[in-house]
Structures are given as C-alpha cells and as structure tokens.
Design a protein around this nucleic acid. Structure first.
Length: 687
RNA sequence: GCCCGGGUGGCGAAACUGGCAGACGCACGGGACUUAAAAUCCCGGGCCCCGAAAGGGGCGUGCCGGUUCAAUUCCGGCCCCGGGCACCA
C-alpha cells in the first residue's frame, strides 16, 4: 500500500450522519425534478429499474430497506453512467389488512391505508431513495383502479373473463368467504373451533390457462431470471403429455386422462373423484352408497383444509357399475375414491395397480388384481426371467409391453404414441396435454378492492358496465363488519341500478377483484402515470418496456410473476404493448433473518429501520443491507455489523469529505488520491 | 416422495476457466496516542505439533471414495440445513 495517501484532514471533524442526511433530504424535497425520468425523446439509452411495490402495512421493515437499497444503488449507478433511468415507486394498497384494521380500530380502510402510505413514503424519503415521485401509483385510488376495470372489460370482451360456480371457503360464523390464508387447520382464523365449509358461489375467472403453453414456452427467453424461479413456474404450470380415453359405462361415457396409456391393458378398475359429475347419476338409486361417497368427499375436504392431501388414507367404494376398456373390451368395476381429484385431468382415472404406486396401494387394500403389462428391459434376460422377477409396482418407461394385444413387444414410448393414435382412429380417445395451472379466480367477497364492473339485469343477464361509466367507484364510509356478507351487498343505493341495455332493474356485482390484479400491470402505469384517458400511452410504454431489472422477494416467484406475465401477453394480444414479457432480468433478494428466523412481529425479532437511522444514519443502514451478505442470499442481521459500517463511513468521511470539503478542493490533491480513486472506479465497474 | 439452493476460520464471506484456501469486512487480542476514557492509527490471527526465537512439520473447504502433477472447484455415493411442489393419474 505504498501509494496509500496519508489522511491529511486537519480538522477534528466527526462524522455525524444526521446533519449530512438532513441536508440532502432537504435538497431532494426542494427539487422534484431531481430524479425524474426524461421523456422518450431523449438521446440517452433508457433503463427501467423496478422494485416490487410494497403493501402499505404501516411501516417499512428491513426487507423493504434491503429491496429498495439494491434498486436504488442500481438506479443511481445507471444515472451516473448516463442512462435515462426510470425508477418509480407506488403502493399495492387494496387488501384485507385495511378491513381488519377497520373492524379492530374503527378506522375507515381508506384513511388507514392513506395514512400508512404517508408514513412509509416519509420513511423512504428519509432513507434517501431516489424515486420519481411524479409517477407514484396508488392502486386503491380511482385514477388507478378504473383502469383495472377497463382492462377487465377488455378481458371480458375477449372471452378471457368468465363466470362460473366454484368452491369457496365459507365461515358460517362470519357469514363470509375466507381467503385460503385465513383457513387455519380447517377452521376459521377468528373462530378456531368453527370448521370452514366449502360453498359453491358464482365467481369470476380469468382464462390464464389459455396462455399456459406460452407462459411455459417463453420461460426459455427469460435468461435473465433466476433458474430457480423459472423452474418453480414450470412446475406450477405443470404440463403433462398423455391421452384421453373414453370408457363406456352403459349409456354414459367416462373420459379418463392418463400419462401412461401404454399400461392400459393392465387397468383393472376405473376410479372416479367423489365430485365427478357422473357419480350422482350412477348412484342415484342407492342412498347407502350416496352416504359412503359423501363420507369420501368429507375426508377429501378435510385433508385439503389441513393442507395434507398426500397423507390421507386411501378409501373407496365399488358402486356396482362397470365400464368397458375400449382396447380389450374388458369390463372394469367402477369405484369412487377419496384420492382422486376432480380438479385435475378429468376427475377419473384408469387404475393400473401393477404400474402405479397409488393404484397398487389401493388395489392391495381392496383385493383388486395387479396385472403386469410392462417389463423392465434388461440386457440378456429372457422373457420368462423378466416376468419372474418383475417387482410391482413398476413404473419405469425404459421397458417393453407384454399382454397388450397387438401392442405387445413395443417399447413404452412408442406404445404411448401408437395407442393414443389408435384411440383417435377409433373415436374413443386422443393424445392430449394437461396443465396443472388453473384459471385464476379473481372474485373476492370483500369491500377493500376494485369493484368488478358488471351488472346483473333481470332481463339481459350479465351486462358489462359501459366504459364511460368507469370508474365504478368504491363507496366510502361503509360499515365494515364480519357478519352479513360483502359490505357492498348491504348498500341498496349502490347495488341497485339501471340496466344500460334495457333500462330495467339491475344489480351491481358486489364482489371486488383479487389484489393480484392490481399488481399484474402497475409497472406499465408508471410509464405514463397521470394519463386520464387510457391506462397508459402505448408509445410511451413501448419505449420503457421491457423492464431492464426487476427486483423483489422470491416469495412472489409464482403468483405475482405468473399473473403479470399473463397480463403482459393479454395486453400484447390486444395491441396495447409490443413486448411479450414484462421484465428482462429478475433479481430475487434474500430474506432478512435475525437469530435464525425471519423477522416477524410474532417472534419479536424485528429491527425497525427508524431505530437504525436514528442511531447510525440512513447511509450506514442501507450500506449494511447491501454489504452484509450477497444480495441474493439471506442476510443474518447483526446490530454490530451496522456499527461497523458506520465506522467505515466515518473513515471515508475523514479521508475524503473533511480534507476536501468541495469537489474542486480535490483537484490539487496528490496524485495518489486520484490514482486510488480511478483504480476503485475501475474495480467497482468491473464487479 | 420429486425439484431447486446451500454447507469454507469465532462471525458475514472470497477464491471468475482445476493452480499459493480464507481476499474484504465484523468481532477479538496486542501496541501507539491520551492524565484517563472514547474516538483514531498500527500490528496479529484456520487448527494441531516441534522450537527460547528465527523457523519447521502435519492436518484442513459437511462425510466416504475416485480422477488428476494439482480438487472448495470435476465424477460416484451419502449426511445435514433452507426453500418450492406434492395422491397431478
């Protein structure tokens, strides 16, 4: 370190972050232009850096500080590199906690939310984050949610929004619907001894499954996303290739989905989900069977509520009916079983005990035959040898078929293709693809959300609100209670309206939208946030998109990041944007951990940013969150670490700021300082 | 059960393409300055053994094995921690 300059500061200056930070805070406040993104006409290359917007829960936590410090460092760096940087911030401000606060503290959700926003915004400013506040987006305000409604109408028009009956969690005590997160061990989170019921309600859905294939395929383009996230999405979409095969049950057809049509000669029964639509008909004349099936259904629901579907003990009943295997005309008994899911495939399976572990377990219990039709392919074995030590259940596919009529002797993969084709030729099936991804149910029987802009007319049925009727405003000063269903439903003056088509009596939809709708496209609004004639101008959006760098927690890897990818593709298809993916690069930062656990109020291991700022200053707090661990890994919080960073900053201050109070003072500085400076710039740039 | 991460000093960690393991920082210890303390500056350090010292030797990146002149890095098998999905037919 021969060239390390001596510290030449003569003044006994102590580094006191408070006045320094106050000075800059005042400067930012006084100059609203400071961090404004320039309009698309600029010559500079553009750079859109985005951090996931927070829910205004009341105060920032260290996870926020970490997330926004990463984004802020990047944004400032790109500014200094001469880019036209867009670095906005907003509030994901609809949602349940506001209603809970209303019930608990008697505050209106709107007031509660807006005052939280004000506080958190002031915290962000105190932390010195460089946001373009001119573009602030607050999702709970009509100037934003009207475009939720507008986009919903577009979805509806394109057939991507539809209504159907669906199961919801219903607490009979609260007389309201619960979100999945509010169901604790099968009971209401408020009424811990009241079992949650499954009720069928008419719900709005978005046809995200229409985009399943694209959402899956385009993951390949997202090379700037963590592989972990891409894999999680891939699993979530859950593409399975297989075949549909129809089994004739007297006058009814039972359609079965299988990924192993090559094992169909080994099928020894048909299994239906308890909720399968044919079940009612097939057991209509048998009250005893009906009761047993209801029992199976109850077991299934219970398991689902407890969240331990995998551990349920397999039960089933033979319903005294048979279906014909179209490949060999064999008569197979029809069972109803508690492990068959209605919401995957067709809700019906062919049971092949010799080649499926679950089927084997079930068959063993009820004495059903396990017939071997696939043999492992092994070098040098004779068929007899293979057959003799075939261990069942065997589910490998590097194998040969036996006892399978004309398909015997084929390899599994070849057999799958030939047999699916055979089924299609003879009209009793076809090759098919199934996804685990389901359509997105967006109805919430809640007050604090975007009203769904739909009317129900006594004569015309479902009538969308006309665009000029937007926004459908959320009424204010509504009494929020637990009982009596959706608060909106109790406002006759709001609910009752006129049908725009026929002028007759109509009722408003009283459900509101899932808040994930709000966050599916908010980042487009930033591009043109004050537009009051469209959600945004397409030309402006096309300049700013795709986002160069998106930063947020990995907990959003699936829901938010799939919904927003879907939403982008929908907007592309309606000509609103040109890009197919919202964000080129995604960075998922690690959690902030303290004493081995995620910081949470319950555990009492929360470190409040305000305390850290008061003690060490915003710079030390921010720098610590950046420095204490690699940004994509969990950060183990240690107060001593912040102290160390504060000392480091004090050293920098003495070294630079005290000897050279202004930039021009640095000019005559000895060569060693400049040398070191440029070395450092080079190294940091390379890193 | 399946799929991802991760496991290196007291701690957070680094090591980019197989080439001096532990950069940088925290904490700690010793020293300087000081009436004193704080602050600051300098020095030290993986573990074990030999040596008064200078110095020398051995071991060491979760565990077991392999490839290689050389392995934190590559290969095979296993253990532990974190996360995601889960009767998905």
């Amino acid at each position: 370190m021969a060239d390390t300059p001596q510290i030449t500061g003569k003044r006994e200056e102590r580094y006191d972050p408070q006045p320094i930070e106050q000075k800059w805070f005042a400067r930012f406040e006084a100059d609203s232009e400071l961090y404004r993104a320039e309009p698309p006409s600029t010559d500079k290359p553009k750079y859109y850096v985005l951090e996931m917007l927070p829910y205004p829960s009341g105060a920032l936590h260290m996870g926020h500080v970490r997330n926004y410090s990463i984004g802020d460092a990047l944004a400032r760096y790109m500014w200094m590199k001469g880019f036209n940087v867009l670095h906005p911030m907003g509030w994901d401000s609809f949602g349940l906690p506001a209603e809970n606060a209303a019930i608990k503290a008697g505050v209106q959700p709107r007031e509660w939310t807006l005052s939280n926003i004000a506080h958190m915004k002031s915290q962000m400013k105190r932390l010195g984050f460089a946001y373009d506040w001119q573009r602030e987006v607050t999702t709970c305000l009509p100037d934003y949610y009207r475009w939720n409604q507008w986009l919903f109408l577009k979805l509806y028009k394109r057939g991507l929004a539809y209504r159907r009956k669906s199961k919801v969690n219903w607490c009979p005590e609260c007389a309201t619907v619960l979100a999945n997160e509010q169901v604790v061990k099968g009971c209401c989170w408020r009424h811990e001894t009241t079992p949650v019921e499954q009720r069928e309600l008419e719900q709005w859905f978005l046809r995200i499954t229409d985009y399943a294939e694209q959402l899956l395929r385009d993951l390949d383009q997202l090379s700037g996303w963590p592989e972990k996230v891409r894999i999680m999405q891939q699993n979530w979409i859950g593409r399975s290739e297989g075949a549909l095969v129809d089994f004739q049950a007297e006058t009814d057809k039972i359609s079965v989905f299988t990924t192993r049509v090559d094992t169909i000669y080994g099928a020894t029964s048909i299994q239906l989900a308890p909720e399968h639509p044919l079940v009612d008909k097939l057991v209509a004349d048998n009250a005893d069977l009906r009761a047993q099936i209801d029992q199976l259904l109850a077991e299934q629901h219970k398991a689902k509520e407890v969240g331990d579907v995998g551990a349920i003990e397999k039960h089933g009943v033979f319903i005294g009916r048979y279906a014909i295997n179209p490949f060999n005309q064999e008569k197979l008994p029809i069972w109803v079983a508690n492990y068959i899911l209605m919401d995957y495939g067709t809700g019906a399976i062919m049971s092949v005990p010799a080649h499926d572990e679950r089927d084997y377990e079930f068959a063993k219990k009820y004495g059903l035959e396990a017939r071997v039709v696939v043999l492992p392919r092994r070098e040098g074995d004779t068929d007899e040898e293979k057959a003799s030590d075939a261990t069942i259940p065997y589910s490998g596919t590097d194998s040969l078929l036996i006892n399978s009529g004309e398909f015997s002797g084929l390899g599994c993969h070849e057999a799958m293709q030939k047999m699916a084709a055979h089924a299609r030729e003879h009209g009793f099936g076809k090759p098919t693809v199934t996804y685990r991804l389901k359509d997105w149910g967006i109805s919430r029987q809640r007050y604090w959300g975007t009203p769904i802009p739909i009317l129900y007319c006594e004569r015309c049925g479902i009538v969308p609100v006309a665009e000029k009727g937007l926004p459908v405003r959320l009424p204010e000063n509504v009494e929020i209670t637990l009982t009596g269903g959706s608060p909106l439903g109790r406002l006759p003056e709001w609910v009752n309206t006129e049908c725009p088509k026929c002028g007759g009596r109509a009722r408003r939809e009283t459900d509101t939208m899932d808040t994930f709708v709000d966050s599916s496209w908010y980042f487009y609004r930033y591009a043109d946030a004050r537009n009051d004639s469209a959600p945004f101008d397409s030309n402006i959006a096309n300049y700013w998109f795709p986002i160069e760098q998106y930063i947020g927690g990995v907990e959003h890897a699936i829901l938010h990041l799939i919904y927003s990818r879907f939403w982008t593709k929908f907007m592309r298809d309606m000509g609103l944007v040109a890009n197919s993916e919202p964000a080129q690069r995604l960075f998922t930062q690690g959690m902030v951990i303290k004493d081995g656990a995620k910081m949470s109020k319950n555990l009492g291991n929360v470190v409040a940013p305000d305390d850290m700022i008061a003690r060490y200053g915003a710079d030390a707090t921010r720098m610590y969150t950046l420095f204490a661990a690699p940004p994509d890994r969990d950060l183990d919080w240690q107060d001593a670490g912040v102290e160390g960073i504060a000392r480091f900053l004090a050293r920098v201050y003495r070294f630079v700021a005290a000897p050279y109070p202004t930039a021009t003072d640095a000019q005559p500085a000895d060569r060693a300082v400049m040398r070191k400076l440029h070395n450092t710039i080079r190294r940091i740039t390379d890193d």
